[in-house]
Design a protein around this nucleic acid. Sequence first.
DNA 1: TTCGTTTAGTAAACTGGTTTAACGGTTGAG
DNA 2: CTCAACCGTTAAACCAGTTTACTAAACGAA
Lengths: 402, 402
Amino acid sequence: MLPDQTLPREAADSRNGADAPRASTTRNGLKITTDRVNIREVAEQAKVSVATVSLVLNKSPRISRATSLRVQKTINDLGYQPNRLAQSLSGRYTYSFAILLPALRHAFADAYFGEIISGICDRAGKMGYKVILEQAKPQYIKDRKHVELFERRFVDGVLCAGFNDKHRFLADFGECKCPMVLVDNKVASMDHVVCDYRLGAEQALNAILQLGHRSVALIYAAPESQTARQVAEVYARKLADAGIPFDKALTEDGCFTDIGGAAAAEKLMKRRPDITAILANNDKMALGAIRYLQTSGRNVPKDVSIVGFDDLQHSAFANPSLTTVHLPLYEAGGLACERLLERVHGKIDRISENLPTHLVLRESTSLAPILSAAAESARQREPAPATPGSQRVGGHDDGNRG
Amino acid sequence: MLPDQTLPREAADSRNGADAPRASTTRNGLKITTDRVNIREVAEQAKVSVATVSLVLNKSPRISRATSLRVQKTINDLGYQPNRLAQSLSGRYTYSFAILLPALRHAFADAYFGEIISGICDRAGKMGYKVILEQAKPQYIKDRKHVELFERRFVDGVLCAGFNDKHRFLADFGECKCPMVLVDNKVASMDHVVCDYRLGAEQALNAILQLGHRSVALIYAAPESQTARQVAEVYARKLADAGIPFDKALTEDGCFTDIGGAAAAEKLMKRRPDITAILANNDKMALGAIRYLQTSGRNVPKDVSIVGFDDLQHSAFANPSLTTVHLPLYEAGGLACERLLERVHGKIDRISENLPTHLVLRESTSLAPILSAAAESARQREPAPATPGSQRVGGHDDGNRG
DNA sequence: TTCGTTTAGTAAACTGGTTTAACGGTTGAG
DNA sequence: CTCAACCGTTAAACCAGTTTACTAAACGAA
């Protein structure tokens, strides 16, 4: 009622310092606090200034060991924990990253993204960072919510997976100087951490060619994606090196989905029934292709061998289990996270990491049919080149080229 | 140098009001602002108070239409966006939820959790909430980081998936009055949104029994989990209703994994080679079981029928494709998210939702072997009860019991 | 003894919003 | 023609931290 009843904060606080015996419930005569203990109560209790408590929290060397210990004890006694909203508001960092994925149906249920996300979350957790999940739906991009992540201080950085050249909004991050790292894809000259698809393709095709296959098809996807193009390039080159001319009829888009893979396999086999091996740009399409081949009465691997890309966890439990190029997606996620943090902390070097792949030989590949009979009769002379089972074909490939 | 050079904020600001022509770069004579436009600049430009801008932002009815439009225009002109750290610090909400998962290896790569996460993220996005990802590692729980999520104001609520009775830390949320909803599991009397495992088990067993199977095994997992126990209960009851006595030798723990499922199938078949049908508590174990059966020379479904639980996306592309109980995990995630928000906004009703399942008939089930021959000769009289392919066996089951 | 130089700690500005009590002006009832 | 009620707006307290410029005390050297 009286106009002078509202006192400036300092006055009210000092009055409280005299009145209240231990604080923690009532703050000044007028209002009741919201239970949680804050930095001012710690300061009061420890008989130091708020600034000192803050410096202790941030391990500043300007605080003596004695004071630091005393404040630390008060912090423990009171069970004080700093409010991170206040910390981030006045401090430099939010200690959060976002993971941005394409607007696919149930995107987070995809094992490919799942591996990347797991890698990011584990590493981020170790670095003291939280991870938030975002999906780049068309409206989301139109509203520029991806830039808003930075402008409204949701995050310090963004990790993008599953995008390619046609996703023009990726350039926005660069323009706004927002730290962003692409995971397992490259676009223009943006920062990225990728699996070595070139190496993977070499490993897959070496295996296929060594098994004697000559009619080798490729189920590709998203030619807008640099990594996908690299696989196609290596496919063409490796076949050429083996004296097999490139034939467009041997390639088909599988849209990265199992249904797409099945449809692609159908088109391929109808066009070229002589195909004995198919390389697919991911495991989903490979499993889709196997599904089609089996439905259409063919045997995998006896009639047609299949090789995938990814090495998803359930590919080992397919029937037949899938021979595939293992991509270190978990590791790529973790590394991207680490590099992103360095960037946030001011490091300006371009981020461009290439992680080696390796081939996992399982049951979906075998000798080319023509060679099978020959091998049968020749068996007494030497064993078959590849024995089934899950065996890793290791490390670096020579990768010889012109 | 001079002690009186540092003026109180008001003085400095008013001085700036006279000096600076349009603000936005220099704030007072002494310091340069950090580029982003804040609410005070908007207020200045619109010639209203900061409070008014805030009220306009929050669509308070106390502001006249004219003023609101004018302020809105200034906001658009300046491209102002409120800093959400400041909003959350002074406001009531953080507008963030956490998803807490168990500390499994690469937890986010699991399609089961993926479906739930997708459901949560989509719904949270629509409600204007961000979602952060957390994993309940042992050290995490020891450090009480799960409670810290609330204490340090990271989130307004938590959604937990993949836990059961033995995860005692779940009780901490209740004690601290922290809004938490369990997704697809029940523990004690905590708030939850679950799939109706009882109904699902009925649907699966109805199908199995109708196909004439009498030796039906169960691959269960996590008996600490209420939903898992429900499936086991319905399994025992349904068999009893069909005059088949319960036999512990027909049940085996599969640990929810594909490897565990394969191992369980092996133990079961060695103990009871007469088994002709197996119900597994999730798709992973079902696929693992199929894998073992095929490796050991049996045909699925001719020798043994398999039914799973989950209906993960890739189960339709297995060979044979999996007959399974579809769990509305995506929907459960979304609904849990919605209920959690209501709870955060003060609604106190207990949250207990049960979402109906349905059976998806695919290729991994067929007539019991004994009946197959009989059906063959009887074919001219009536068709086989179930035709293969992916057909949904709809809606609610009668679920008759004592 | 006196004058720099550390050292340890603090007051106060600062981050950018929300919210509440109050205020001046207009309107309606008595 | 008052007085009360209402309406739109605002000043200032408030959320809970970080950071900077300053100061008092202790120290060492001249």
